[in-house]
Design a protein around this nucleic acid. Structure first.
Lengths: 181, 181
DNA sequence: CATCTCACTTTGGGAGGCAGTAGTCAGGTG
DNA sequence: CACCTGACTACTGCCTCCCAAAGTGAGATG
């Protein structure tokens, strides 16, 4: 039912609120405007007023959000020129944004399954190459699909051994695993 | 680089801002307090003031957030009784919350890789059973790993054929539901 | 019966997201 | 040269998130 915590994480009080990567990620993409802009970027939008119009946000908000997303590195601003027009700028997804895609897909499928109300799921995703439906899986390097209660979380840098010899000093009950009840 | 849109989705102007499941998902888990409460729930927290203290939020906010999360169905309130204590309530993750885990893990790993600043990644996740590092993958029912530009998005209910026959009338579903938040 | 703990609620205030309107600036068109 | 378009910026005001501090009520403890 819960993650298994190792190392300094086992001391919940000192770590939890700080440096939580989920919190940091949501600080970047957690607002309605940021999510809207990103969604439109994934769907192919590149230009300023398309972002504002399609994401349904005010121009001032679109400008601020695009600036923020460029600043954190999710979008890059690149010049382009249509014939007979002056040079303008368009926004492109970076590798950082492409790496975020599994999270977006997972959120999309979860939201679609649980939050669409009485009208039910609205979106179906499939693999463009083979047509099969898509899902997001958590899996390990050995190829196992990992369930919610099979995840061990430790500070990066700590050894990854399964058969931990312990002698882990003062981490009172270093593995905090709670069974389902 | 972008999703392939099919069906009524291809008409961006009519669909985009409405019924977007990512927006709905973020309305539920996109605030600092909601993310903090959920994080603590995944790590094993069950009781009110542990949530407030460990998530680093004010009690008033914790109360409001727990109420919201129970209302949408991510947490359930269950009575418990310690010996010599009166009956109290604790909060448990529901199946809906467990289904959200892939999204959380994906966000965690992305945030950890890109947003931890100069101190670098802080969290390492591994499979409790075999010790191998964990990653989140988007894959299809045929077992292929799906890249960012290999995703086809269509209204659910439309046929999934790769060779799309097109000529599909407008499946303009009725927009329902008000945003939470 | 006074006190304590747990699980909240209430009140008050500050910060920031967001809409809406208006204004700016560069460069092309009539 | 006036006008238009694309890409913004500035300003006002509402609304939500959030914190801090104080208060409440039920039940256990002394």
């Amino acid at each position: 039912m819960t993650f298994v915590l190792k190392g300094s994480f086992a001391d919940r009080d000192t770590w939890s609120p700080r440096r939580c990567p989920v919190t940091k990620a949501l600080a970047v993409i957690g607002t309605r405007s940021a999510a809207g802009v990103l969604r439109e970027a994934y769907l192919g939008t590149r230009r300023f007023d398309d972002f504002a119009r399609l994401a349904g946000i005010a121009e001032a908000v679109a400008a601020a959000r695009l600036r923020d997303l460029v600043a954190v590195g999710l979008l890059s601003k690149q010049p382009y020129q249509e014939p007979g027009q002056r040079i303008r700028l368009e926004y492109h997804l970076t590798q950082m944004a492409l790496d975020l895609m599994p999270a977006i897909v997972a959120l999309m499928q979860w939201g679609d399954a649980y939050l669409q109300g009485e009208s039910g799921p609205a979106v179906a995703l499939s693999h463009a190459n083979c047509g099969q439906p898509i899902s997001t899986k958590v899996c390990c390097a050995a190829g196992h699909v990992v369930g919610p209660d099979e995840i061990t979380m430790r500070p990066s840098g700590m050894p990854t051994a399964v058969t931990s010899p312990q002698s882990d000093a003062k981490t009172h009950a270093a593995g905090v695993s709670v069974g389902a009840r």
